[in-house]
């Protein structure tokens, strides 16, 4: 056994310790507000990470990923309105709903290629958007409130720190799963498809099936993120499924680094914290975001994350 930790081992440990200590320090320093901000960052990090599975690992440019995020959120809100408030019941249903919609939408969309795929995923998300707009029983255009956070035995999720820690654990768990998946047989096949799909077919892989499973798993993870965001905001409206929301998730991923395990986390943190700071300053912060994004796309196609993560091997 080695006695010294290398920096590459030390860095994740430091980040985990900092993340665990953050809510307590923030509360102690009177900045309890920032616990909620960081919770939101982590939930978006999870959503962006699920998109990373589709785009960065699966090579599919999905422009409708917010749909599964929104479906998960609505599942929890609707169940709560119908009296189901237990997280044990509602959250798995939200995950299943995200997966089910991804399975159906993916099954049709993955028959198409290139531009068609981008636009058909976009259109399906918009279809769900209008579905929830016209769903008057559950708030229609105005959305629907979640009366109280989901209930768990032993844990009181109304406590910001508890909720923060739970979200942190779920995010860490999903990142670990993604890492395993990327290194597994399945992940290897995804990488092969991303690089050269015709050859994968010629090696005997039913590529459609693998891409569909990838799309569905990502939908499930996005559904979980949705279940968390409605608990965080206490509210969900169709705007959570709007196509600009899908665009926002894409931006996060690009800023963070597509195909890098922590790309979604880095991007969500960069973008939401930038928003937090800039929107205090100016009402035109999206102009700034647009310019940054334009610059990144034109100058550094690998994403901001790739500037920091040159040493990390991808895949």
């Amino acid at each position: 056994m080695r006695m010294r930790l290398s920096t590459s081992q030390l860095r994740p440990a430091l980040i985990v310790i900092a993340a665990l200590a953050f809510p307590f320090l923030a509360e102690a320093a009177g900045g309890g507000y920032y616990v909620g901000v960081m919770t939101r960052v982590m939930i978006y990090a999870l959503a962006a990470t699920s998109l990373n599975l589709v785009l960065g690992y699966g090579g599919m440019i999905s422009f409708g990923h917010a749909a599964f995020f929104g479906v998960g959120a609505y599942a929890v809100a609707i169940l709560a309105q119908e009296g189901v408030t237990s997280a044990w019941a509602a959250w798995p249903i939200a995950v299943a709903a995200g997966a089910a919609f991804a399975l159906v939408i993916g099954a049709i969309s993955l028959r198409t290629r290139g531009l068609y795929f981008i636009m058909i995923t976009l259109a399906f998300a918009q279809m769900l958007y209008y579905f929830f707009v016209s769903l008057r029983a559950y708030g229609g255009e105005d959305g629907i409130n979640l009366a109280a956070r989901s209930r768990l035995p032993w844990l009181d999720l109304r406590d910001e720190t508890t909720f923060y820690l739970l979200v942190l654990a779920l995010l860490a768990g999903c990142l670990y799963l993604l890492r395993r998946l990327a290194a597994s047989r399945f992940g290897t096949v995804l990488r092969g498809i991303r690089e050269n799909e015709a050859r994968m077919t010629a090696l005997g892989y039913p590529t459609y099936r693998y891409r569909l499973v990838c799309f569905t798993v990502a939908g499930a993870a996005a559904g979980l993120a949705g279940a968390l965001i409605v608990n965080q905001h206490g509210f969900v409206s169709p705007s959570l499924l709007d196509w600009t929301q899908s665009g926002t998730l894409l931006i996060m991923l690009i800023l963070g680094g597509v195909g890098w395990l922590y790309g979604g986390v880095a991007g969500a943190a960069a973008m939401l914290l930038l928003e937090e700071v800039l929107s205090h300053w100016t009402g035109y912060w999206k102009l700034g975001l647009g310019l940054v994004l334009l610059f990144v796309v034109l100058r550094a196609p690998g994403g901001v994350g790739s500037w920091f993560a040159r040493g990390n091997t991808r895949g």
Partner: peptide, 26 residues
């Protein structure tokens, strides 16, 4: 982007059992 060995391993993998395996590192 893969090594020559990994290229071939991907072909071998295709004919040696299911690749719907998500956990064990290849």
């Amino acid at each position: 982007s893969l090594t020559v060995r990994d290229n071939i391993a991907l072909a071998v993998q295709a004919r040696s059992g299911s690749s719907m395996r998500f956990w064990r590192p290849v």
